[in-house]
Design a binder for these strands. Structure first.
Lengths: 235, 235
DNA sequence: ATTAAATGACTGACTAGTCAGTCATTGTCA
DNA sequence: TGACAATGACTGACTAGTCAGTCATTTAAT
């Protein structure tokens, strides 16, 4: 076997010294030393999730190496397997745990009773563009689009938790707008996707083409809203 | 335990060799019409491209195996390397050669002089939805969205050849519509993306969610056009 | 016969997942 | 309180593959 040669060559300086106490004391960048065992474990789990997130977004599922995730998380590879069954279920769980706060954040818009439907939708879009489209969360959406077909469970989850609910909410808003006379196009309630379409365009544009041509996503969305609600007073 | 997606895919063993070649040879019941050297080579190259297309779409770049492409193309693995430098440049060239006819096909709309701008856009959308969104070409678009960030050259090419030209053409059409009085919203010319947005939504929906909820993309697009051009006479 | 095209067994670099061992923390008893 | 045992989180070398790319050999067109 060539293992012997490879083995020794692979890692020449393991530097076993600063494992536990060593790693804890000098790492004052962490606000929490956390000498409690369970706390530290949870902290590590969080570090793994964050690292995995970055790696998966940057490389996609198949091209991501667990060694890299471990390195980025500051953890040994074996530790990953204390928290996740395997690479695939780590990916799925990752998406799930990332989606929930994203959706929560998005639906946490203060439902001002006096506001017009247009203002509500615009506020929503503003939040989405600022908090999702122009941040790493947007890459998460792109990641789901990219890997969805190969991870039906992820696509299902995303449909149930985000798409289905989001469209239902948007439909309700559209119907409110129609009832109030703000929206003339009654057929729009059949396709809430139309309301959301420019937001998704913004996400994709951001990842792929913003280098070539920056896109003012919010202004684009406002023009889109003009189509639906009619021209603004203040242009 | 290995990756489930990879594994299940691995099972589907393509049968005898001339799967693709047979499909390519147009007007003959003969499996092997070409005895000319250059012709056969070109045929093989085409088979490799078609097979690679299918595999890359189904699995993404990193998870696709050259062995599978070779098997599907009815060719030995070494043959691939007679036509392409390596996996990566094969992918890039593949996208390039697939995009060109796709764009050509799309811009080959007969520019009827008497038609309204709305009819032109609608005809365009109809072609797009029938020929791209609901076919394998749509998956190609999704593939570019998925792999674009990891293949800047592909993203660049796509921007130059498709996005940039497409938006310019669409902008011209919008300006024509404004000049003719068909379109009231002058700001729309700033964001031709809005015009196209539902078409992209349709492509993504098709790949990810059509199992859960089918989407009548053409009707959606018509409703979208109602927003831009005003309500249709015949609802 | 000559030579380009095609083949597929082979190589070696790479990686998901394992597991025997380590050691900081926690629990227990005197 | 101090000593010692039990725990289990953590480690990383290791195994068992996988797969891109090569090349000596075979096939077949000219």
């Amino acid at each position: 076997m060539t293992n012997e040669a490879t083995k020794s060559a692979r890692k020449s300086a393991p530097k076993p010294a600063d494992r536990r106490a060593g790693a804890r004391a000098p790492a004052s960048s962490k606000p929490k030393p956390a000498s409690n065992r369970a706390e530290r474990a949870a902290e590590r789990r969080g570090a793994i999730i964050a690292a995995a997130m970055d790696e998966f977004i940057a490389r996609g599922f198949a091209a991501t190496r667990l060694d890299d995730i471990a390195k980025r998380a500051g953890v040994a590879k074996g530790t990953i397997y204390l928290h996740f069954k395997d690479k695939e279920s780590m990916f799925e769980e990752l998406i799930r745990t990332a989606i929930v706060p994203l959706v929560t954040r998005l639906w946490a818009t203060p439902p001002q009773p006096g506001a017009s439907v247009r203002d509500m939708v615009e506020g929503f879009a503003k939040t989405f563009i600022e908090e999702v489209a122009t941040t790493r969360r947007g890459d998460l959406v792109r990641l789901i689009v990219a890997e969805g077909p190969r991870f039906p469970e992820v696509a299902d989850f995303y449909y149930r938790e985000v798409v289905s609910r989001g469209l239902a909410g948007m439909r309700a808003l559209i119907e409110l707008g129609i009832a109030r006379g703000e929206i003339q196009h009654k057929n729009l309630a059949q396709f809430p996707q139309i309301m959301v379409a420019p937001a998704l365009i913004a996400v994709i544009w951001q990842s792929l083409f913003s280098r070539h041509a920056p896109l003012d996503a919010l202004e684009m969305f406002r023009v889109h809203l003009d189509l639906i609600f009619g021209e603004r007073r203040t242009a």
